[in-house]
Amino acid sequence: MPSVSMTVNGKAVSGEVEGRTLLVEFLRQNLSLTGTHVGCDTSQCGACVVHVNGESAKACTVLALQAEGAEVTTIEGMAQNGTLHPIQAAFKEHHGLQCGFCTPGMVMSAADLLQRNKNPDETEIRDWLEGNICRCTGYHNIVKAIHAAAQAMRG
């Protein structure tokens, strides 16, 4: 069985996988990082979004072996020393979630947006969330939270 090595949330990890093992399966099953969710498993819903080498990707549509040598960040890598990442804090503050299933993907997707565009307007936020589906909130508070996070991160 092939083995794969990568850095996940700053820590070197490796494991044995099949060719067909998905990155999201490796994260959840081998590493027990279950914050990354599998919603649709068809690359549409975005609950599985993680960062691969700094860019957001749907971990259900990446093979674990494609991430060989990559730097991967999951939702578990966002809070630092027990302090929520500003995007997580903003989701909490602005009630950007109800059931929370989509939230890890929303936060990781938003983090990619805010590293490219420090001051997105509402349209840009909504366009960016094209690949993240939420069935509870109606998106309004998610957009509000990302807007507030952008403001907080600009300082």
């Binding site: 690359s43 975005g46 979004v49 860019e55 957001s56 990707a57 749907k58 549509t61 990446v62 997707s109 990619d112 947006l113 960016w128 094209e130 690949g131 993240n132």
Partner: peptide
């Protein structure tokens, strides 16, 4: 094309 995550890969 697609969404930002699809466009990244």
């Amino acid at each position: 094309i697609g969404d930002p995550q699809v466009r990244n890969r």
